[in-house]
């Protein structure tokens, strides 16, 4: 399988790191080489934050994604910053509720998902990240569906175990939206 070099970017509090953790845990379950690297510091409390995930079949060199082939963005500054860095042929997943402009490049694939609106409509405020993840899974196949379920069980803290279904429903909704 091709390497997936993923950047997930937006505001702190949007569940960016969590989304990355789901992918990383799924990669672990699949026995792949991987790294997960968060931005850290004050941005964790609400500034622009990001998370780099690399899933590979060979040992990961730099954990810092220089040229993502998968980009998930949940605010405009992040699209502005990372759009030029995506490799030609890469995929960009845009939360179109929060980002009103479109992707300017024509050598990448762009997917517009009104994830924040969809999550609110479904009564799952705050799970737009999982809707975007669903779209990513459907369009990249970076990890298998089954391992994502297992990963969710690992990543969701025990005291919030009741949120599994909500996360799962959002992933499915994201998949359905882009298929």
């Amino acid at each position: 399988m091709a390497d997936h070099e993923i950047v997930i970017a937006g505001f702190g509090g949007q569940g960016l790191l969590f989304t990355g953790k789901v992918l990383a845990h799924a990669g672990l379950i699949e026995g792949r080489e991987l790294s997960w690297l968060p931005s850290y510091g004050p941005e964790m409390r609400g500034g622009t934050a990001n998370c780099n995930v690399i899933l590979s079949d060979t040992p990961v060199g730099s954990p810092i994604v220089q040229h993502p082939n998968v980009l998930i963005v949940m605010n405009t500054p992040s699209l502005d910053k990372y759009e030029p860095m995506v490799v030609p042929g890469g995929k960009i997943f845009v939360d179109s509720t929060l980002i009103t402009r479109t992707v300017e490049r024509d050598d990448v694939e762009a997917f517009y998902i009104p994830a924040t609106q969809m999550a609110t409509d479904m009564g799952y405020h705050g799970l737009a990240n999982m809707i975007l993840l669903g779209a990513v899974l459907a369009k990249t196949g970076c990890v298998d569906d089954g391992t994502v379920d297992e990963a969710l069980h690992h990543v969701i803290p025990a005291r919030k175990a009741n949120l599994f279904d909500a996360n799962k429903a959002c992933i499915e909704a994201g998949k359905a939206y882009v298929c």
Binding site: K21, E33, L34, W36
Partner: peptide, 10 residues
């Protein structure tokens, strides 16, 4: 360094 401390790997 900060990267090594913050990153996750298997």
């Amino acid at each position: 360094d900060g990267t090594m401390g913050q990153m996750m790997e298997p």
